[in-house]
Design a protein around this nucleic acid. Sequence first.
DNA 1: AATTCGGGGAT
DNA 2: ATCCCAGAATT
Length: 379
Amino acid sequence: MRHVSHAPDPILQAEIGRYIVAWYRAGHRDLPWRRTTDPYRIWLSEAMCQQTRVETAIPYYERFLALFPTVADLAAADLDSVLAAWAGLGYYSRARNLHAAASEVVRRHAGVFPDTVEALMALPGIGRYTAGAVASIAFGRPAPIVDGNVRRVLCRLFALEGDPSRPPLDGILWEVAAALVPTDAPGDFNQGLMELGARTCAPRSPACGACPVAARCGALRLGRVAEIPSARARPPAREVERVGLAVRDASGALLMARRAPRGLLGGLWELPGGDLEAGEAPPEAAARLAEGSLALAGGALEARGRVEHRFTHLRMVLWVLEAPAARGVAPSPFGGYDALAFLGPPARGAVALSALALRSLHLLGEPDGHERARRTGPP
DNA sequence: AATTCGGGGAT
DNA sequence: ATCCCAGAATT
């Protein structure tokens, strides 16, 4: 039920804009990308922050810029090194698209970043949100943005009911955001909306007493702050079961496989393996892959344990089995892989390993393996 | 319009 | 355990 008028009157719009900008300028988090207007850096920060907490992204941002200081450096890098710098952040299509977009900026835009929403959205990985963020923050254009924070703030401010991440409310929010963004300070306004959502208008127990627009907040007036916005509907996580094979060369280096550069964990390296087929037990699947895909000579595989990993949309169980010897390993990739190589810990440090792969390495006692998440950011 | 993409921190 | 995070691409 959306009986509230969606377009606030112009006077109220201007008032809200001024309050948000003034509140933002009076004090905000000192984030590294707020010390620059370099569109490359703004773009990188926006890509890293997609579906990712700001605090998580910061160390990756610093390390990534140290490795690839300019868009030309990024375009010239190979995808393995870009993904290695991204490893642990998740949603790896962001890194693949970032790399592809850098090439386009260099090749098609002569290394100069496009400065309009339309041109920005033509680059891979840049959607409506990121285009608006770069256009407003780096170039001062009055483009609206709607992210998770803005959705929550605007839904509460105008008491909009429904699922804000889906039509029709999704479109309404873009209209409201476009009506609100001021022409004189679009970057500070947009960042102020996000800052407000992150620090004050929090999902649970918001600090309405510290909110600059609390006096205008429809949800607060109606006593429905806790109910607005409604939770996003999520399908139940599906179950996936895989086996991974530990195969060593004479030096003890593990055979690693690189997943094809699309889909789940695309471009990342892991223990070679595959999904269980219907009705198949882990040892059977491991034997099938060892003898068929890897052409390993006989010898029983030894179970080394299992690693369980939860993604947002799936729950994966990985059974790890070790081959006693590495005789007759096929050099050619199989299944969904596009490369195979024996990599010891030093070589693995130069490529991208998923959190799941790191946990499987930990299971094998490898020094670069991890039981849980790193707390200190990338290596 | 609905799914598919990671991973972790807060509650 | 559940929610959600400075979303975008694909189907």
